[in-house]
Structure formats: C-alpha cells, structure tokens
C-alpha cells in the first residue's frame, strides 16, 4: 500500500547494517513500508531509533540502502528530510521559545515560505490542542504539552511521512491516550503516513496498520494489524456458572453477539461486540441480569501479541 493506496512504497529498506564499534545496531534489515501507519516494535536497543535515523539520512548505513518516498535517504539527505516529519524520542525543544515560534521556525527550516509557515503553525497547533497555549514559552509546558508541540513541529510542513520515535514516552495515562489518538488521526484523517517506534505493543496495535518487530538489530517478524480482528475489537470467550441461555439472551439484549464455542460442550461462549470496553461492560451487565457467575474470561482467538511471539519463536 502506498500513500495513495497503491504503487510506490513509502519506505524501502534493503539489507541495511550499522555498527557502532563492536555493537551491531542493525544487521541486514530489509523491510518495505506500504501501509499508511507502521509500527516499529522492539525492546530498548533493538535498533528502532537507528533504523529511523537511517531513514532520515542522519546516519549513513555501513551497507544496504534506504529509500524514503522514492528518494535515496543517504544521498540528497536534505531533500528527503524537508519532505519528512520527525519527532525525536527525547526532549529536544528549545525551552526559551514559544510553541508558535518553534513551529513556524521548523516549518521554514523544512522549506515553507514564511507566510505559509505562520498560517500552518496555527493550524497544526489547533490540531494538537495547543491553540490556547501557543504563545507560552515551552519551558512552562507539561511533558504532554511538550510532546504535542513536538508532534506539531513534525507535521507543520505537510510531510508525506512522519517518523515518530517513542511518542508516548514519559506521558501519564491521560497524556498517552491523547497522544495515541493524535497519532491515529495523522494517518486516518490528516492524510499523513506514519512510522512509529514503540516498545509497547498496545500502542502500535492501536495506531498502526502493520508492525515490524525488531530484535537485536534484525527484523524478527512483520504482521498486518487487522483493526476489525477479534483481538482488537476485544471479543472474549467466557465460561459461566449457571444458565448459559439466559446469559446469551441478556447479552444479546445489550447489543452483543453470543455463540457457543466449539459446540459449547464445555460451557464456553464467545461474546462479540464493536469495541473492547463495550464487550467487557456488556458481559458484566449480562451476567448480572441473568444471575450467573463468570468462571473464566479470556480473549477470543490469538492476540496480536501471541501471534507475534509465535512468529518470533
């Protein structure tokens, strides 16, 4: 899948290796990014940030090649970088500037004419929810506001692809929820393709269409993320104590779909709904209404995590 849903891949990485002294950061990584939102998943030191920096042309790979938006990332690095957005992992914002000034400045550095940069800075700060705070110095911001400013500077120039390095790092639960929602909006509503790194599978599963798992500098697995899959919808298997038919009727009245799993001889029922929270709430309410007990409750089918663990071995 390309930006337009077909044709050229957004990123093509072919046999990229990178060493820092005796440490192998990337070991023959080959990957093609076609989806509009791709997650790079891996533990600390797996090579996610190094791979992102190769894509940006910030470091040169020892071997292999990386093409981003059809441009060789190692050659005219400045040319590809002005078409990309980048949100670094660590705090790197100039604390003495206002959010608006920073976003305008970064827009200009990525090739926008000044007048356009000023207009677009207002747009993106509105989009990330900082329109009221745009004239405040960044040093007065909370961690969440800094991350949103960081995201705003990465998308101000209307990039074809934005690279987000651990965007939820250091955020509290509420800030994390907001950031994940913003990241998902980039690819689904704002038309910006996303490559996001994270060591949290849930973050990737919620925001991306596919995942590339890196382990010790190698691609360990790649998987498409089906947002309509049971795992993402939150479908569950339940085993109840009491009348299963009564439970099924109560659940169906709450808008859930219930069927017996494997014939239902051992009492398992599969409950399906539109979202995870709705399913769990419905199961609780249906059990209460039917007057039955819940003996066991499990995710229906293999989760993305189980699938990836199986692929990695």
């Amino acid at each position: 899948m390309s930006r337009n849903g077909g044709g050229e891949p957004l990123v093509e990485i072919e046999g990229v290796s990178k060493r820092y002294g005796n440490i192998v950061a990337l070991d023959g990584v080959t990957a093609t990014v076609r989806e509009r939102a791709v997650g790079l998943l891996g533990a600390n030191g797996a090579g996610k940030s190094t791979l992102m920096r190769v894509m940006l042309g910030l470091i040169r790979a020892d071997s292999g090649s990386a093409k981003v938006l059809g441009i060789d990332a190692s050659k005219p690095a400045w040319e590809v970088r002005r078409l990309l957005g980048y949100m670094p992992e660590h705090s790197c914002l100039p604390l003495g500037m206002t959010a608006r000034d920073l976003v305008v400045h970064m827009g200009e550095l990525r090739g926008l004419p000044r007048r356009v940069a000023v207009l677009r800075a207002s747009e993106v700060l509105f989009q990330v929810g900082l329109e009221e705070e745009r004239s405040r110095l960044i040093r007065t911001f909370s961690v969440g506001m800094k991350q949103r400013t960081n995201l705003a500077q990465a998308i101000v120039h209307s990039p074809g692809l934005v690279i987000l390095d651990e965007p939820t790092n250091g955020l509290d639960p509420a800030g994390r929820e907001e950031m994940l929602a913003l990241v998902r909006r980039l690819s689904t509503e704002l038309g910006i393709a996303v490559v996001m790194s994270s060591h949290v599978l849930e973050d990737v599963a919620r925001t991306c269409d596919s995942v590339i798992v890196l382990r010790e500098g190698k691609v360990a697995a790649t998987r498409a993320i089906d947002h309509t899959s049971a795992a993402v919808r939150g479908d569950v298997r339940v085993r109840i104590v009491g009348d299963p038919d009564g439970f099924a009727r109560a659940a169906q009245e709450l808008g859930l779909t219930v069927h017996r799993d494997g014939g239902g001889e051992d009492g398992w029922l599969v409950v399906q709904g539109s979202d995870a929270d709705g399913v769990l709430t419905g199961v609780r309410d249906a059990a209460c209404t039917a007057g039955v007990g819940l003996r066991e409750l499990r995710p229906a089918g293999p989760t993305l995590e189980e699938s990836l663990i199986g692929a990695i071995g």
């Binding site: 040319e79 790197c92 914002l93 970064m106 550095l109 090739g111």
Partner: peptide
C-alpha cells in the same frame, strides 16, 4: 536543550 537533533532532521 538538545535541539541539534531536531535541526538536523530538517533540510
């Protein structure tokens, strides 16, 4: 402020 990495990610 470690802003250099931000600058070097631009043109």
């Amino acid at each position: 402020d470690r802003t250099l990495s931000l600058y070097f990610s631009t043109a």
